[in-house]
Amino acid sequence: MTDETGARPAQQPESSGQPQASGKEKYYVRFTLAQRYLHVVLFTSFLGLAATGLPMRFSDNPTARFFAREVGGFGAILFFHKFCAVVLTLAFLYHLKDIATRSFVHKEKGIFWGPTSMVPNWKDAQDLIGHLRWFVGLGPKPQFERYAYWEKFDYWAVFWGMLVIGFSGYAMWFAPFFAKFLPGWALNAVLVIHGEEALLAILFIFSIHFVNTHLRPDSFPMDMVIFTGKETDEEFQKKRTLEYRRLAAQGKLEAKVGEKPVYWWVNFARVVGFTAILIGLVLLVLTLIGYFGNA
């Protein structure tokens, strides 16, 4: 449960054939191509699930009905919802397989514990307290390792969310099969669980994750690292001071040097990223209207 990238500069096809525009700034590889693609698959399927799930949750809302009718009614909505669900399930299984292969086959260290692991540790608790103290001016700003506590929370929220929403979703999809080993009331419960957990995911991703990761002043308007996979030396030092220092001390920093992301790729990623954020914000507004409009 980590994504220690290692030095894999070969995985940047987008920069092949492009001359180095400037030698001034140094770039470090932060995410592998596979990780960046996983994020794209994750957010596109999530947007698809949210856009088709919300009309079902708030089916008495006029916007929901209008949208459903425009795309071909409930049949089309449910088909697309299930399609996105299968895509996301495959992405989830791929991620599990990746973790398993790296930790048990390649015997990679630091996946389940240590500074590069996604597993929360004591430092995360300290960072949370320290960060909150810094917000209100009671202490210095904490310095972070590869994954900060809010990123670990994002990760586990998505991990737990996919298990809960996925399980309850498949239980509805294949209700008679699940009824063989679930009590009758569980069939009622899965809709409540599915809807509430999905609501949490939508509200969390489209507000908290968007602001924490992309829209807050330090990253505004978008943190491009998950799209380009690379970060400048300055950013790396400032945002992940401890990781930078640790890698420097271990002499692993130079192995992570990568090429500057090419112009068209960054712009393309911006278009994709902003589109996703825009869709997300629209869905957020519609969700709030749906929720509080009917409460």
Partner: peptide, 12 residues
């Protein structure tokens, strides 16, 4: 319930 929610969206 699901029965109502999806009926309301039409086409099904």
């Amino acid at each position: 319930t699901f029965h109502s929610q999806l009926g309301l969206l039409g086409g099904y």
